[in-house]
Amino acid sequence: MQLGSVFAVLDRRTTIEPENPNGYLAEKVKGQIEFLNVDFAYPTRPDAIIFKDFSIEIEEGKSTAIVGPSGSGKSTIIGLIERFYDPLKGIVKIDGRDIKTYHLRSLRRHIALVSQEPTLFSGTIRENILYGGASDKIDQSEIIEAAKAANAHDFITSLSNGYDTYCGDRGEQLSGGQKQRIAIARAVLKNPSVLLLDEATSALDSQSERVVQEALERVMVGRTSVVIAHRLSTIQNCNAIAVLDKGTLVEHGTHSSLLAKGPTGAYFSLVSLQRNLH
Rank of each mutant, 00 (worst) to 15 (best):
S55P: 10
S55N: 15
S55L: 12
S55C: 15
I56S: 11
I56D: 09
I56H: 15
E57I: 07
E57L: 10
E57Y: 08
I58D: 13
I58S: 13
E59R: 10
E59F: 03
E59D: 14
E59K: 15
E59L: 13
E60W: 01
E60M: 01
E60I: 03
G61L: 05
K62C: 10
K62Q: 13
S63D: 02
S63T: 10
S63H: 00
S63K: 02
T64H: 06
T64V: 06
T64K: 00
T64W: 09
A65V: 01
A65K: 10
A65Y: 06
I66V: 13
I66A: 09
I66P: 11
I66T: 02
I66H: 08
G68Y: 05
P69C: 11
P69N: 14
P69Q: 13
P69M: 14
S70C: 11
S70F: 08
S70N: 12
S70K: 08
S70A: 12
S70H: 03
S70I: 12
G71R: 07
G71C: 11
G71Y: 04
G71Q: 14
G71S: 07
S72I: 09
S72W: 11
S72A: 11
S72Q: 11
S72G: 12
G73S: 07
G73M: 01
K74L: 07
K74Q: 05
S75H: 09
S75K: 08
T76S: 13
I77C: 14
I77F: 03
I77M: 14
I78F: 12
I78R: 02
I78M: 04
I78W: 07
I78A: 05
G79C: 01
G79A: 07
G79R: 00
G79M: 07
G79Y: 00
L80F: 06
L80T: 05
L80M: 08
I81H: 09
I81Y: 06
I81R: 04
I81F: 09
E82S: 12
R83L: 15
R83P: 11
R83W: 08
R83T: 09
F84N: 02
F84Q: 02
F84I: 02
F84C: 00
F84R: 00
F84K: 05
F84M: 05
F84D: 00
Y85I: 01
Y85M: 03
Y85F: 02
Y85N: 00
D86F: 01
D86E: 14
D86T: 01
P87Y: 08
P87F: 08
P87R: 09
L88C: 04
L88Q: 13
L88P: 01
L88F: 03
K89E: 07
K89H: 13
K89V: 04
K89Y: 03
G90W: 04
I91D: 08
I91E: 15
V92I: 02
V92P: 04
V92G: 06
K93H: 04
K93L: 09
I94A: 12
I94Y: 10
I94C: 03
D95F: 08
D95V: 08
D95L: 03
G96C: 14
G96F: 12
G96H: 15
G96Q: 14
G96M: 07
G96V: 14
G96P: 12
G96N: 11
R97A: 12
R97Q: 15
R97F: 13
R97I: 15
D98A: 06
D98I: 11
D98R: 09
D98Y: 11
D98Q: 14
I99A: 09
I99S: 08
I99T: 11
I99W: 09
K100F: 02
K100G: 02
K100R: 15
K100A: 05
K100C: 06
